[in-house]
Design a protein around this nucleic acid. Structure first.
Lengths: 238, 238
DNA sequence: AATATTTCTAAACCAGTTCTTAAAATAAAT
DNA sequence: ATTTATTTTAAGAACTGGTTTAGAAATATT
């Protein structure tokens, strides 16, 4: 959950109509979600995407929710897991908590209550994150230019210049994806959490600011891929 | 809950037989508990005793569970609150979550499930507790300035000056994380337990107080990272 | 139990900075 | 040529931070 952007939720549910309802409900609450129809598919997705919460049906073909929950919990000790179940035998519920579930709801349930519980879990994990996380130092060196993201400054030949939070975030995104094309949409969602006309213009303003910084080195530049996005890349010396 | 000792639970329930059953169950699970028969009594007790979790019945004479929960949440932003309710209208449940409940169970419920949910909540809050309770020496020496956190005073060239509890706590947090950027949110959660508009401005007031103290040494300073937070750092000697 | 003292919060004000919007100029693609 | 995308500059809006102060709340003292 970068910045103020919406939480991203993994939704695994084999009953299509319920799944559609849930996906719609999550959207209305302002969350983004990724839907998977069974446990195997979900596990594949989970390995490659970052989620703020997992909403798992227990009874599913191929791999049931509990098994999936265990895999998820083993890989990520903190991501909140909420199980949905139809025929909740007490033992099944206890099994869920045993493998590290955070909450359990029995069908049929109130959508509003589900949303309330989701918010509780998200708030808790967010608080936990803030409590523990003191920004890991992020210092990059490009040519004779030092870029300190967490302390928000750049240093060029003993000349220290402060940069803003947004500049730092954008710069970090580029550095982490050096030589890769970042689409406008990716950048906008990552840094601003939204993608609309004005924010897109704003990005251009910030590209301009960043180019002035990057110019201090003469090895690297931000190049535009017309109609697509931008790329931080080594200059061609030809 | 100091490390290995059992969690201490506030149990508020006006139905005597259920209360007795719950108290017994908590004991079997290895928890200690304090029983109160109504909200008013519970609030008195809560103010003077430290609990790791609150188990509150919603329907009670004198002060209902929701009101009590709100008082508790205002005083302590972190202690987990679990509501028990007989006739759970959806709205009542939502009200509970609204005031900051962490979980909700509808009577009749499975004792085993209740215990599982209690353990989940305790586990989550444990992480934070551990972070708070990192034992560190309470006396620091920075340059010619001695800072005694537990006795709440600073000493500079034989000049002893008292500092307040909040000043001491904030100073300690900075010293423990010297040269690391602390976000406003992290600071607020640690020192004030909440992050809202007024508390945020309050932080600025205290930064101001602390800077006057820190100024007594000329090696160290509190610097602001615009839009992010603050950092206690060695002055740059350039 | 009343009073004094200290500490904390809320609020106002100002200064500084960062972000957004707008608009004009330039470049690329069809 | 014309449309669409990008670059650049700039003004003001919005936000963030620093400082002081008055009164509320909590704590200590008589």
């Amino acid at each position: 959950m970068t910045k103020d952007t919406a939480a991203h939720i993994l939704l695994v549910e084999d009953e299509k109509p319920l799944a559609a309802l849930l996906k719609e409900s999550l959207k209305l609450e302002g969350f983004t979600s990724r839907y998977c129809k069974d446990g195997e598919e979900a596990w594949d997705i989970f390995k490659s995407e970052k989620f703020d919460l997992c909403l798992l049906d227990v009874n599913m073909p191929k791999m049931n929710g509990i098994e999936l929950g265990k895999l998820i919990r083993d890989k990520d000790a903190f991501v909140p897991i909420l199980f949905l179940t139809a025929n909740s035998s007490e033992q099944e519920v206890l099994d869920g908590f045993e493998i590290g579930a955070d909450d359990y709801m029995t069908k049929p349930f109130s959508l509003k209550e589900l949303n309330a519980r989701i918010r509780v879990l998200l708030k808790r994990s967010q608080t936990q994150r803030n409590f523990i996380a003191t920004a890991t130092p992020e210092v990059f060196q490009i040519d004779n230019l030092t870029i300190d993201i967490s302390n928000q400054f750049i240093k060029h030949a003993d000349d220290i210049k402060k940069i803003s939070k947004t500049e730092a975030e954008l710069l970090k995104l580029f550095i982490q994806h050096k030589n890769q094309v970042l689409t406008r949409n990716t950048i906008l969602l990552h840094v601003w959490g939204r993608d609309d006309f004005y924010t897109a213009r704003n990005l251009d303003v910030y590209i301009n600011k960043l180019r002035k910084i990057i110019k201090l080195t003469d090895q690297t530049e931000i190049i535009n891929i017309h109609g697509t996005g931008f790329k931080l890349a080594d200059k061609l010396t030809s």
